[in-house]
Amino acid sequence: MGFLQKLGFFCIRLSFLLFLVSPLVSSSQEQMKGAGSHKENIHKQMSHKLSSEIRLHGFLLWASMGFLMPVGILAIRMSHGEECGRRLRILFYVHGLSEMLSVLLATAGAVMSFRNFNNSFNNKHQRVGIGLYGLIWLQALIGFVRPQRGSKGRSIWFSVHWILGTAVSLLGVLNIYTGLQAYHEKTSKGIKLWTKIFTAQVSAITFFYLFQDKWLYIQKQGVLLGNEPVRPTADQVLLPIEKQKQSVTDSS
Rank of each mutant, 00 (worst) to 15 (best):
M1Q: 07
K6S: 14
C11L: 14
I12G: 01
R13G: 02
L14Q: 15
S15V: 14
L17T: 12
L18T: 13
V21T: 15
P23A: 02
L24W: 14
S27T: 09
S27Y: 12
Q29T: 10
Q31T: 12
K33W: 09
G36M: 04
E40N: 13
N41W: 06
H43V: 12
Q45S: 11
Q45K: 11
M46W: 08
M46D: 07
H48Q: 02
S51E: 10
I54Q: 12
L56A: 07
L61F: 03
L61Q: 09
W62Q: 12
W62M: 07
W62C: 07
A63V: 02
A63S: 07
G66I: 01
G66A: 02
M69N: 13
I73C: 10
L74H: 15
I76R: 04
I76T: 06
H80K: 09
H80P: 00
G81Q: 03
G81E: 01
C84Y: 12
R87T: 03
R87P: 00
L88H: 11
L88K: 13
R89N: 04
R89A: 02
R89H: 06
I90P: 00
I90H: 04
M100T: 06
S102R: 01
L105F: 03
A106P: 00
A106I: 00
M112N: 15
M112Y: 09
R115T: 15
N118H: 09
S120M: 07
N123I: 03
K124R: 03
K124L: 08
H125A: 03
V128K: 10
I130E: 02
I130P: 00
W137F: 03
L138S: 10
Q139P: 01
G143R: 06
G143D: 04
Q148G: 05
Q148T: 02
S151W: 08
K152A: 12
R154T: 05
S155P: 00
F158M: 06
F158L: 12
S159H: 11
H161N: 11
W162V: 11
I163H: 09
A167T: 08
A167F: 07
L171Q: 05
N175M: 00
I176V: 07
I176S: 02
Y177V: 08
Y177N: 08
Q181F: 10
Q181L: 13
A182W: 05
A182K: 05
H184Y: 06
E185N: 05
T187E: 14
K192C: 03
T195L: 06
I197H: 09
V202L: 10
I205F: 01
F207Y: 13
Y209T: 13
L210D: 01
F211C: 04
D213W: 14
Q219Y: 14
Q221M: 13
G222S: 08
V223A: 08
L225V: 11
E228H: 15
R231H: 12
D235P: 01
Q236I: 01
L238S: 05
L239Q: 10
E242V: 11
K245H: 11
V248P: 00
T249V: 04
S251E: 04
S251C: 07
S252M: 14
